[in-house]
Design a protein around this nucleic acid. Sequence first.
DNA 1: TCTGTATTGAGAGCCATTGTCAAAACGGCG
DNA 2: CGCCGTTTTGACAATGGCTCTCAATACAGA
Lengths: 140, 140
Amino acid sequence: MSVSGQPVKEQRRTRQRAAVDEVLDETADFISAQELHAILRSRGAGVGLATVYRTLQTMADDGRVDVLRADGGEAVYRRCLREEHHHHLVCRSCGAAVEIAGPTVERWTKSMADKYGYVDISHTLEIFGTCPRCAAQSSP
Amino acid sequence: MSVSGQPVKEQRRTRQRAAVDEVLDETADFISAQELHAILRSRGAGVGLATVYRTLQTMADDGRVDVLRADGGEAVYRRCLREEHHHHLVCRSCGAAVEIAGPTVERWTKSMADKYGYVDISHTLEIFGTCPRCAAQSSP
DNA sequence: TCTGTATTGAGAGCCATTGTCAAAACGGCG
DNA sequence: CGCCGTTTTGACAATGGCTCTCAATACAGA
């Protein structure tokens, strides 16, 4: 996936999509579709849940947001700064994330795949931990 | 998780748990709880779905099976050969997996975490691709 | 064998996510 | 500016994975 360019079909500018975009811009942490929907709702912006899901999905397909699975398997989204492929160092407690690139890892996965004859490779790598701020709060 | 030892509480040997164990032994690929349940059912061994879930979950907690999330977020399980921490090269098409260890990666994630002050680190890394066998079938 | 406790299982329940489809919103065009 | 074909939306139903409930049942040690 996301190997080809971004020959995105349509893409009308609508109030709903703008709203979702806005929330993503303001949020530095990974959030779920449900949370995003709740924020919009509390903010008065009426946007249907289905629309939030659709929008996030489209954005994810286009590579405009990053997706990863929370512990329970729930999908969480985040607007990323760097366009290129990268990974995250995510705070288990507050969701704060740092984007990191790992040329070493990329090379390593490639060599492993080659070694075993696997083709059309992709990979997922996320690091979870407790960020400095949260760590400080729990043991002062 | 799985940092501490395995102070597993009880663990009675039951027909159901043995059945699940058996299927896992015979299966080299990652399979979902639902699939495992279907296999048991087709085999005549009556084991409730809830039990399959519970058993797999317990095994996962004890580190006796590895878990990872399929594309749709569904959890898939597999009995692993090596006890220590490792990763997988998984076939997107048939689920066949190769276990691989990556000292380089372990070191890298550790250094990244340190760099940003994150503590109590854990990480997930899985490589997906098409195995030689499946690749051969699709373009002969 | 007896007994206290761990385990099971059928089914209800929970929750994230997707499908449906008529009504509403876009945006290019005249 | 209003028209129109197409894209989007959204309320709600429907899926599907997974968990909870709790009475019935199967262990395992005495």
